[in-house]
Simulated scan of single mutants.
Amino acid sequence: MGQHITVIDYDPLWERKYEEESLLIKDILVDNCVAIYHIGSTSVEGLAAKPIIDIMVAVRSLEKVDRTAADFSKIGYEYLGEFGITGRRYLRKGGDERTYQIHIFQAEDWINIGRHLAFRDYMRTHKKERDEYAKIKKELARKFPYDIDGYCDGKENFVQKIEKLALSQFDGTWDKMYLAARNVQYEREISSLIEAGGVCAAILTNKGNIYVGVCIDTECSLGMCAERNAIANMITNGEKDICRVIAIGGKGKAIPPCGACREFMVQLMPENYQSIEIMLDYENKKIVKLGDITTSWWI
């Protein structure tokens, strides 16, 4: 018998299940894990769904992922390789009563990462389409309770239409910045006196370019914050106007720039530093302007 297809009303416990499973995944991938996301219908509050938690992971190296297949098997996953999508690693748990699916992409694979985030975010903010999707899925589940191909084919046109619409409206710049910064965030021992990489940062310029940097920590005061390292990279490449900044601490969480970095950006853009956007909470997209968190008494 094939996979059993059921569609039920949204369950708030799905988010907790994602959080718990994501910890297991991070423990296996360790430093190779750049970012992890709850995607698919169970990530959309209010949307009826198959009770299967879809998880997307961005990594530095798919080859390193392949070497963890046995570790994933120990926690119940089938490791199925690309499974029809080039550049993906697909894993599933639960057999015919599927419980979890993991979709792993290289961090630079924005086409695949972006389309999943765009679809999720669109469904989160558009009730009419969300309700329509729920109705389609419930009808298909009744019609094809053990025919996953029939179920998927039945919703394909709707999914393609929404994905195209979602991508046309999606601004994934913060996500691109987060991935770019996290991709260079790992500990480096440069010498007996210098370590680097514990904190990372990305900046977006008014030309749409993203520059990244990591912190450099020394035994004295000669080190450099990740934000200023990214800015130095920007200046080296002939630009000077910053639009957005995200700095990321050791646990993958956004952190505010320190006072020295704020003052550096003020001196770099004294006429319009107030407009620079700072990401304070990536998961909840909490953003402030530099002018709101920086005093201007000395200008």
Rank of each mutant, 00 (worst) to 15 (best):
E20K: 14
S168K: 08
K64M: 11
L222S: 15
L193S: 15
A260K: 10
G46E: 03
G223Q: 08
L29K: 01
I5H: 06
T6E: 15
G291Y: 05
Y151L: 09
L268A: 08
R115P: 00
D66S: 08
C261Q: 09
L13Q: 14
L193N: 14
I53V: 10
N112S: 02
G84T: 12
R115M: 02
G95A: 03
K289L: 12
I113A: 02
D131L: 15
S73N: 13
V30P: 00
S43M: 03
L80T: 11
I299D: 08
I203G: 07
D11W: 01
A48S: 15
L204V: 09
E97F: 13
C258I: 06
N229H: 11
L24T: 04
C215T: 12
E15F: 14
V212A: 07
G95N: 02
E21R: 09
I113W: 02
V44T: 05
I194G: 06
R130G: 03
T295I: 13
Q267R: 14
G87K: 02
H103N: 10
K161T: 14
D147V: 09
V44S: 02
W110C: 00
W297E: 12
A118S: 09
Y100G: 00
L290I: 10
Q169H: 09
L62F: 14
M177E: 06
C243F: 09
E21S: 06
G114R: 06
R188W: 04
L47V: 07
L222C: 14
A35C: 04
T236M: 11
F170V: 08
V266W: 05
K128C: 08
F83S: 12
H38N: 11
G259A: 05
D11N: 15
G2M: 11
D153V: 05
H126F: 08
F119G: 03
E21Y: 08
P51H: 13
R188A: 10
E187T: 11
F72N: 03
K93P: 08
D27R: 15
D153S: 12
S73T: 14
R244V: 02
S41A: 13
R115N: 10
L165I: 13
G150V: 11
Y178V: 02
G95W: 05
N233P: 05
W297G: 13
M234I: 09
G46D: 00
D171L: 03
